[in-house]
């Protein structure tokens, strides 16, 4: 059976890289005595897929992974069991047994929500200036950028990939002391279209005529979505609610 696990990655665990996180879960699941299904061969390893790698330095309350098990207990019991084996700033918040034949998290992912804050102590626009300029930025007919890959450079339009934006006022910052809430972004994520919040911020800074300093921004991922819409109509649902 395949199980989808939702988890948080906060505090100092934001410095743990993607591959290290994968190894972390392999060991955590073994500590929690999950009935893991192993790959065959001389170096058997558990079958774990993380939905969308989170960049080093980003925090999240909406991460997902799929893991293959031979058997398991009730979700509530499993969540407790896993959390007992985890570090305090990586913790499981949901546990769903996927129906037979479900696509894995990496394959269905379509969008991600981010909350961007400002770190204190850096020069940046005033909040009102930022809002005016961001509206102007978004209201362009298109936001053309050059996307560089290892092989080539190609021109693309960012605008249709920014699904939504919203200025933040009272965003709960309990885990981000000293950060000033700025903006919420919903961005295309996944194998078809994938843009990172850093790219939007960098492009915005260029538009606003200010130099881009990545350390100004603290980025928190809120949720990952799959698209269950028919045809061209988008219908985004969180990865743990896709089969309800």
């Amino acid at each position: 059976m395949i199980v989808r696990i939702k988890f948080t990655k906060t505090g100092s665990s934001k410095f743990v890289g993607h591959l290290d996180l994968l190894r972390y879960f392999q060991k955590a699941f073994r500590r929690a005595k999950l009935d893991l299904t192993y790959s065959q061969g001389f170096n058997p390893h558990p079958l774990i897929t993380i939905a969308a790698p989170l960049g080093v330095g980003l925090t999240s309350e909406g991460e997902y992974l799929d893991v293959t098990l031979n058997s398991c207990d009730e979700p509530a019991i499993m969540i407790d069991r896993i959390n007992e084996a985890m570090a305090n700033n990586i913790s499981v918040t949901d546990f769903i047994i996927l129906p037979e034949g479900s696509k894995n998290a990496m394959a269905v992912i379509a969008a991600a929500d981010y909350n961007i804050s400002l770190r204190e102590g850096y020069d940046f626009l005033s909040i009102n200036d930022f809002r005016d300029k961001f509206r102007d930025f978004y209201n362009q007919d298109s936001i053309m950028i050059i996307k560089k890959t290892k092989k080539s450079e190609k021109e693309m339009d960012l605008k249709p990939l920014i699904y939504k934006y919203e200025f933040l006022d009272n965003y709960d910052l309990s885990q981000n002391d000293g950060y000033i809430p700025l903006i919420h972004l919903q961005l295309a994520t996944g194998s078809a279209n994938n843009i990172k919040p850093e790219l939007v911020l960098e492009t915005f800074c260029e538009f606003a005529g200010i130099s881009y300093n990545p350390f100004v921004f603290a980025t928190h991922r809120v949720e990952l979505y799959g698209d269950i819409g028919k045809g061209k109509e988008r219908d985004l649902v969180p990865l743990n609610k896709m089969n309800n």
Binding site: D20, A28, A87, N89
Partner: peptide, 19 residues
Amino acid sequence: SDEILLSVDKPARYIGNEI
């Protein structure tokens, strides 16, 4: 600081808090 940790290779070497 975050800025220092994000400027160096493998910042998780310096954060402690391991299992």
